[in-house]
Write a protein that binds this DNA or RNA. Structure first.
Length: 425
RNA sequence: GGAGAAUUACCCAAGUGGUUGAAGGGGUCGGUCUUGAAAACCGAAAGGGGGUGCAUAGCCCCGCUAGGGUUCGAAUCCCUAAUUCUCCGCCA
């Protein structure tokens, strides 16, 4: 949520900043609501002060044997007037809230505007793998190695579902365990959150109200709950309505959950297989920091995410996203993109983002500094990582001429020492 | 799923209609004592949101889980909800 004070003071600045996010904002109506609201508040509160004074004088008047019915009458008159104003105030409040709740976050000043086409690769790691033979894509590989069963996945769940089988399940689990062990090493706290969350959590993360349709809602529970689209949604709500002391910041968490999303199915032909599904596995990192520390935390998250891909020995790049391509709630995002040889392009395996105080404002997550200063914390998140593209990347980048696939060294301890996956058919 | 109870500030807790921001304790901070610490004693500060405002000054409004209601006046009475606990049932 953008601070209304900022809009009040620098509407043009906010407008220009949002333009970079391809968002055209007009604040004239909002500002007039806001002005009206504050004028009303002054009237209503003056009236309340008057009523309080009158009521407080009742006991003394009674003791003195005076007639208090006149006081009662006066208070009632003021109350009647206020009732009207209150109604109006409520209306203004909800209009203002709804308007602001839908605004995206303000992108950082150094970002270029526009969409995807303006993303910029800022780092390239490793070399594009070269093959002296005709390569297979990950779907072929997964099938020939008996790692994934697409047929039965569709049978038991429907389109957009697959099953990790046998060594595929072990590889998937090994990847997750590798990530988990790395985060533990770095001192992050491991969280296993519930997968069904309430509406408020979606609001705070910034997914709602705008993206209510992108998640799966569960009927049968009252009030309704939704399946989390990413563990971030759970993690940034951990400290909702809390005031954290500076000493306990930064808070560093990571969680493993499947991510449930409706957007599956929009894939192009070259994206077949496990690149998009209704459900995929991800380990997610989240940090809560003091505002002045969030830039540093951002660098740390980017480094951590990149480091995982690096340790897996995969070729990848890091892109700095243009303002219009970063998600609604975020002020800054770098993507880690791993190379998929069969389609010759780089696919996102991690998005590292700084939400600054956007989510903290929505969730009232505050800090109290050592010197008594109060304010909103900054929240940041980064995948660390999503397996659904790491898995294909490993299969494709590590494939051998005989159709086998080498297991990256760092994963071998998590797979009982298995070094190579051999074709089963 | 059924029955009951609870929810007060950082924590525990008093308070059932009228200066209650809200007793008391713990904790915190400062001091005395001590080589230092503990203990004891003395003292202090202590929530958050909002309006006005240059103000982290003052004034005012809101505020005792949340949202409504009754009343001149509510932490206190009524309704609804959330959460927690206990018992019963069911069950990984």
């Amino acid at each position: 949520m953008i601070d209304i004070n900022l809009i009040r003071e620098k509407p043009e600045y906010v407008k220009e900043a949002l333009k970079k996010k391809l968002w055209d904002a007009d604040f004239t109506e909002l500002l007039s609501w806001d002005k009206e609201k504050r004028e009303l508040i002054q009237i209503v509160e003056a009236n309340k002060a008057e009523m309080n004074k009158l009521s407080a004088s009742v006991p003394a008047a009674k003791k003195a044997g005076e007639d208090v019915t006149l006081i009662f009458k006066k208070v009632k008159e003021i109350a009647a007037k206020n009732a009207e104003f209150d109604e109006k105030l409520k209306e203004l409040d909800s209009k203002i809230h709804d308007f602001i709740a839908c605004l995206p976050n303000i992108p950082d000043d150094d970002l270029v505007g526009g969409g995807k086409e303006n993303n910029k690769v800022i780092e390239v790691h490793g070399k594009k793998p070269e093959f002296s033979f005709k390569i297979k894509d990950h779907v072929e590989l997964a099938e020939s190695l008996g790692l994934v069963d697409y047929q039965r996945g569709a049978k038991i769940a429907g389109r957009g579902a697959w099953i990790y089988t046998n060594l595929g399940a072990r590889l998937e689990w090994a990847i997750l365990n590798f990530f988990i062990s790395e985060h533990l090493k770095d001192g992050y706290e491991f969280i296993l959150p519930p997968h069904l969350l309430n509406e408020e959590s979606g609001f705070v993360a910034g997914q709602f109200p705008k993206f209510r349709e992108d998640v799966f809602w569960l009927s049968g529970l009252e009030p309704q709950r939704f399946l989390l689209p990413t563990a971030e949604t759970a993690l940034v709500n951990l400290h909702r309505n809390e005031i954290l002391s500076e000493e306990e910041l930064p808070k560093k968490y990571f969680a493993y959950t499947p991510c449930y999303r409706r957007e599956a199915g929009s894939y192009r032909t070259e994206e077949r297989g496990m690149i998009r599904g209704y459900q995929f596995n991800k380990v997610e990192m989240v940090q809560y920091t003091m505002p002045e520390d969030s830039d540093k935390a951002f660098e740390e998250l980017v480094f951590k995410a990149a480091n995982l891909v690096e340790k897996l020995g995969l070729h990848f790049q890091i892109s700095k996203l243009a303002a219009g391509d970063i998600s609604h709630s975020m002020a800054r995002t770098y993507d880690i993109e791993v190379y998929i040889p069969s389609i010759g392009i780089y696919k996102e395996v991690s998005s590292a983002s700084n939400a600054r105080d956007y989510q903290a404002r929505r969730g009232m997550v505050r800090f109290k500094s050592k010197d008594g200063r109060k304010g909103y914390v900054h929240t940041l998140n980064a995948s660390g990582l999503a397996t659904s593209r790491i898995f294909p990347a490993i299969l494709e980048q590590y494939q051998q001429e005989d159709g086998s696939v080498l297991v990256p060294e760092v994963l071998q301890p998590f797979m009982g020492g298995i070094k190579v996956l051999k074709p089963v058919k």
